[in-house]
Every structure is written in structure tokens, then in C-alpha cells.
Design a binder for these strands. Structure first.
Lengths: 142, 142
DNA sequence: AGAATAAAAGATCAGATTATCCTTATATTT
DNA sequence: AAATATAAGGATAATCTGATCTTTTATTCT
């Protein structure tokens, strides 16, 4: 479904959002520990997410990452996925055919389209804030 | 969604099934041409599919690949995917969490599960023969 | 100002995936 | 039997992904 980088990225963003809800910043080391990911690799992923503007960062002592209150409710899963994995899973033919579309459908098109639409709907309608809130008492991110 | 090998594999199987419906065998070269895939790589993929028993093969002049009549209606998409990509996309947590399950759900679990179930359903219920039949006049596999 | 901290950026490495090429085994045709 | 066609198998190359290490830059604290 997602690349490793994307999995770590989503988990990192949920963790940061959760901490941001209680006005805390988190560093790469703490993130990696919380989501059980390789630290240096997580740093690289955070770099991408930071450059995309989905997360804020500041260097130096007591620096780290955070997500603004209004961003948290606006950011959805799809935005995170697109930064790290591109829009590949949201567009194009399920069989990788170049000419496939609604008027020239591949043999899987009509079965595949509604499933993809459901995926897009969920990814678009699920906000980061929602995911972070669910974290309270339900599960860890490991 | 799928690896390149799996995409080529699915397309190859649909093409072979289509030819088998009219009692023809197809060679690697013809398959690669029909589905627009690299020939040698396609040969490797056919090797795996052949070893799995989903497709029959014979060497020598007028050799090639084919799928038995009864196999064609029994084989579903999921079987092909599992041979080439494993069952990864059908099992496990959408965020790659080890402890995630119905009683300890991750924050995405309840959104993700129905989409996965829908995917499993269509992959299991779509037979190769069905896909091959749809190919008549509708689309190419390129 | 200097030391300490932490993210950003760049270089590098390992493994998996994608892809090609060459040889071998097997079947058919002449 | 020899030539030919074709899949199977092995070796290798190229590219992508996952991951680490080192250096640089920005910030804070003393």
C-alpha cells in the first residue's frame, strides 16, 4: 500500500500532531522512539515533510517539529501520502495501462474504480487532528 | 498498488487466458508484444507463474503458455498477486504497526479495514476468464 | 562570545527490484 | 540425426528504496 518512508511519515505526523495538541515540540530522536523507526531515516523523511510545509520545524536547543492548530484540522492523509509517495495510488490504471480510462476501460477498471474512490474519500476526509485524537488510550504507534 | 512484475504478470495472464479461450498457445515474445513489457523480464515472470501451476507451458517449436479451461474460471486475481507480490497487501496493518488488530486498532484501522475488505472481495471474486472475456473489443493491454 | 543542541543537507552504503544477456534443456520439424 | 524453436535457469547490470554517517547551519544557554 505505502512505502516504508510513507508509513513512517504518517506515523510521525500523527505523533507530532498528538504532541502539538498539548503544545509540545518533538525532536527526531523522540519521534523515532515513539513510532519505532530508524532515527536517521526518520530525519530524512521529516526533512521532506518540513519542506512541503505540512510540519513546522526549528533548530537548536528545545527545537523540534510541531504542527499548527489550524493546520492539524486541515491536513488530511492524502496530503501526507502525496508528499512521500506521490499521487500514484490515487490516479492511473490499476493494471498500469496507459490507455485505460472511463471510455476505454481495462478489464479491471469497473471493479477497481469504486474501491479507489472509497480510498480517496477516506484519505481526503480523515484529518490529522482526528487521527491524533484517536491515539489517546487506544493504541501506540509502534 | 502492485509491483511492476505483478502488473506485467496480471496483464500476461489475461492475455494468455484470452488466447486460451480460442485454443491458442502464446510464446514470451508474443506476450511481451501484446502487453508492451520487456521481453526477458516477462520471461522471468512467466517462470514464476509457471512454477506456481497457474499457467501451463511447453518448450520447443509451437510451444508456449496456456491456461486450461477449468483453471481459467477458477483462478482469481488474488492468486496471481500472491504468487508475484505475496499476501502483503491483503494482511497486516495499513500503517505497518505490529500490535494493530480489531481490539487494539491503530488510528487508521477503522477507516482502512473496509477498503481493504472491498479490495480483497473484488480480487477474490474476479476470475481470470471474466477478465479475458472483457478484453474482446473493449481495450488493449498496453 | 563560546559551548551545546538540534534540524538541514550531502555523501555514501546495502539490499531489493527491474531488466538484460547468455547458456541449457526440451520439444518439433525436416 | 540435425536443425530449429522455445521455455528454464543462471549470471550480471542498472535503478530504486531503505538506511546510516558526516558536515553544515541555526538557535539557545551560560
Amino acid at each position: 500500500m505505502f512505502s516504508k518512508a510513507c508509513e513512517y511519515g504518517i506515523r510521525a505526523m500523527i505523533h507530532i500532531a498528538h504532541k502539538s495538541q498539548i503544545k509540545e515540540r518533538v525532536g527526531v530522536k523522540a519521534i523515532a522512539k515513539a513510532i519505532d523507526s530508524p532515527e536517521a531515516f526518520t530525519g530524512k523523511i521529516m526533512q521532506q515533510l518540513s519542506k512541503s510545509g505540512l510540519v513546522q520545524s526549528i533548530k537548536g536547543p528545545h527545537g523540534g517539529f510541531w504542527i499548527n492548530d489550524d493546520d492539524r484540522v486541515k491536513i488530511n492523509l492524502r496530503q501526507i501520502v502525496e508528499v512521500l509517495d506521490g499521487d500514484q495510488i490515487y490516479v492511473g490504471c490499476g493494471l498500469g495501462l496507459s490507455q485505460c480510462n472511463d471510455s476505454q476501460p481495462c478489464p479491471m477498471h469497473n471493479q477497481f474504480t469504486p474501491v479507489r474512490q472509497a480510498l480517496i474519500k477516506i484519505h481526503t476526509e480523515t484529518s490529522l487532528d482526528e487521527l491524533a485524537t484517536k491515539l489517546d488510550g487506544i493504541a501506540t504507534l509502534k
